[in-house]
């Protein structure tokens, strides 16, 4: 069994430094534009910042993965191609791509640049993964968060490519890269704009009963009593009414925390453990990375370490998500 690699997010140079000093094996990040799936205001890296980030990471034995994981706009792929070209020339350790056209471009233009398949490509089965491997020489696949641990183990037996799975953070309940809910309500989606439920479409209003109502575009996503913990109105984490009953129809406001099943994931043949949260602050990064570094290191000694990350968890609740089959 090879050592598990801890792959950590960074939305700013400060977050990158926090990840590196907290024990990340690799940091993934994106440029400050629509080429990556966390295209949030004030977030991400300029070319200069990336260069400094690469230097800092490499000096500390940490890799840099550049996420270019949105789908280029028809008729205007320039920014995406430029992102790959710049990543290659700046010396990133891998690019994380989702779009077939982009994989085709990168494999022809930069054959020596290591390619990872983004979770946004939603490659959930051996035939799809083999396709990306055969066609574009993809070295690692980030698995969509739809698979159970048993399915991941079965999958790894059928493929000959590294796999990476999410172990902590925000949880997409839909198959990644195959969800247009956000653009239906706001006009912007992960695939096209690199944002889900964008902040520019978010409003918090107080209603006549003193409840805080969160809206996304023209739609009410949730309402909170005065003493109730509030959530960011991510569409699939909202409360809706079906058959006359209001509920968290898609998912409760919970975060993924797979810390307790790290040994199972290792046994299932996984290579990379990915932490979600490029949009979150350096405090979050430092805390989560430190916690998982300790969990991974102590796993090597045969121990399971409980992570206490409740306070930075959305809704202050955690789930092992689709890794448990009953989640479905």
């Amino acid at each position: 069994m090879t050592a598990l690699e801890l792959v950590c997010p960074a939305g700013t140079p400060a977050a990158l430094k926090a990840a590196v000093s907290s024990g990340a094996d690799a940091v993934y990040l994106g440029f400050r534009d629509a080429t990556n799936a966390r295209n949030f205001p004030g977030l991400n890296f300029s070319r200069d910042e990336l260069q400094q980030g690469i230097d800092h990471a490499h000096d500390n034995g940490c890799k840099i993965f550049l996420a270019i994981n949105t789908f280029p706009t028809a008729g205007d792929s320039t920014a995406w191609h430029q992102a790959v070209d710049d990543g290659a020339s700046l010396g990133v350790d891998a690019v994380i791509l989702a779009d077939i056209g982009m994989l085709d471009y990168a494999s022809r233009k930069h054959p020596d640049l290591r390619r990872h398949l983004s979770v946004q490509a939603s490659a959930s089965n051996p035939e799809a993964i083999r396709f990306y491997q055969d066609a574009f020489d993809v070295k690692r696949v980030v698995l969509p968060r739809v698979l159970s641990v048993a399915e991941i183990a079965a999958l790894n037996k059928e493929i000959d490519v590294e796999t990476e799975v999410f172990v902590f953070g925000g949880l997409c309940v839909m198959a990644e890269g195959r969800c247009a809910l956000s653009s239906y309500a706001t006009g912007q989606s992960p695939n096209t704009n690199g944002v889900c439920s964008p902040a520019c479409a978010v409003r918090y209003d107080e209603d006549e009963n003193g409840r805080m109502v969160s809206k996304l575009g023209d739609f009410t996503i949730n309402a909170f009593e005065a003493d109730e913990a509030a959530g960011y109105p991510t569409l699939c984490k909202g409360r809706f009414v079906a058959n006359g009953e209001a509920s968290y129809l898609f998912e409760d406001p919970v975060s993924l925390n797979a810390a307790s099943i790290l040994p199972d994931l290792a046994k299932a043949g996984v290579t990379g453990l990915k932490i979600e949260g490029r949009q979150r602050g350096k405090a979050y990064i430092a805390k989560v990375v430190t916690s998982f570094r300790r969990a991974v290191d102590s796993m090597d000694d045969g121990a399971v370490v409980e992570t206490d990350l409740t306070e930075i968890t959305e809704g202050q609740r955690k789930t092992a998500g689709a890794y448990q089959k009953t989640w479905r």
Partner: peptide
């Protein structure tokens, strides 16, 4: 996901 000419041409 077919969002652009690159993917369309490949497919």
């Amino acid at each position: 996901n077919v969002y652009n000419e690159g993917t369309l041409a490949y497919l």
